[in-house]
Amino acid sequence: MEKKTDEYYIREILKGDSGSFSQLVERYSHLAFSLSMKILNQREDAEEAAQDAFIKAYNSLGSFQSSSTFKTWFFRIVYNTSISKLRTRKNIEVKFEDVKISDSEIQATENTIGQLNTEDRQRYIQIGLERLEPEEQALLKMYYYDDFSMDEISIITTLSLSNVKVKIHRSRKKLLQELKFVLKDEIISIL
């Protein structure tokens, strides 16, 4: 069967066929939930935020400008909804701490992770990610996992392009720093 574009379904929905929205839900529910989960770290909240994001998107489809892709536009809604939920859940202030890890330590950590088997690597990276701020996790996930470009992430998060670059670079370093602590024993045993 021919795969229809997002724009086709949007036109159908705007014409009154709400059922077409299920195609967009089918296409993006996994990615939306995954991003929400990275930010909120709680299944129930993540599902609720992803659902809210879909409803917000449905209600604002009329204002969707095809100058950006539906995916980017929708992920901006998912990101904002999840961040708002996080802020109401606990009065947190998203902050980026200083990262103190040298280039040689980064190299050593990367080598160690590279030598681990897939199962261990998954486990350690998951632990490392959980030690990061939700916003840092979301940025890394969007860039490395969902393959969003820096420009797209800038649109989604409403951060400037240079800010996105700095934050992704810093989050990546912080992840490696956390992994260094987690893997301390492994590094010692290899050295």
Binding site: V25, S29, F33, M37, R121, Q122, I125, K141, Y145
Partner: peptide, 17 residues
């Protein structure tokens, strides 16, 4: 990127849609 791709994907509940 390769390491991230190895991570298990988060799946919403079956009745999410």
């Amino acid at each position: 990127k390769d390491w991230f791709k190895e991570l298990p994907s988060e799946q919403p509940s079956p009745d999410f849609k």
